[in-house]
Amino acid sequence: MNLAAREYVDKTVKQLIRITGLIVILILTGIFLMLLYNTFAFFRHIKPLDFITGTQWNPSGKIARYGILPLLVSTCLVTLGAMAIAIPLGIGTAAYISEYAGKRQKNILKPAIEMLAAIPSVAIGFLGIVFVGPFIAGATGLPNGLNALNGAILLSVMALPTIITVAEDALRGVPHTYKEASYGVGATKWETLLKVTIPAAAPGIIAAVMLGVGRAIGETMTVLMATGNAQAFPQGFLQSVRTITATIAIETGEVPYQTTHYFALFAIASVLFLITLLVNVIGEHFVNKFRKYHSA
């Protein structure tokens, strides 16, 4: 090829690559604008204050109610429960893999964790119905075990691979010299892990937790199957709950277009979007806070 042709190819490729980048931005803005437009349409029908403070979600009642609180509390309940289980378990596993496990244990654990991530969410939801649910029911004496606790347990399993993998990367990335310095002043392995390695890996661990939270908040199928989906205001972990995601999944199929109910689903999707955004911003904040100790 002559020089002119090669330069022509170079320029064309540059434009093509630019277009692929722009497409991503276009899709994101498109989704965002669609959410925003429909949310505003919803607020022409329902006052924002009623939406935010309403304690009832019942679009098909005699008097339709569009209070997001029960859904929001449900989502938070299930997510917090999942994190309460997954964070200690995930960081513990990550620490075991990076600091304690021998070569052979590592070779078993790491693929096992990757396989955990490969299980379809519907299969985990199924597990919730036939295994975790009856177990909770048996342990608590409730008629069934489809409740927030069930959802939390399942979501923790789903968030675990993300948390473990990212946290383990972070722990392994801590320079060996930090650990040596700690052992050098007489610290034990546990003291070194707790006070040197984990703090030094904190940005990565927080990122791991945030990714886990993101996974848990956005997960739909599992919670849809395992949490019972009662419309009542959630009272605790042993109550049936209905998350934002499950609500959207259940109701989108039946709702007539361009109705208040239709717009309402976009409004709650916007709220979900805002929460995820917030989670990311908080994560980013912590990452920056810890990063300053690492910059040489």
């Binding site: 320079p175 010299t177 040596e180 310095a181 700690s182 050098g184 002043v185 007489g186 030094a200």
Partner: peptide
């Protein structure tokens, strides 16, 4: 290791404050 201290080839302060760098060893001991 408390009785036989070590200074390493590459300076390896902990990613903590100056004060904490020394306080750490005192605290755990």
């Amino acid at each position: 290791r408390r009785r036989v201290g070590m200074v390493f080839q590459k300076a390896n302060p902990f990613p903590k404050s100056i004060y904490e760098n020394i306080n750490y060893g005192l605290k755990i001991n």
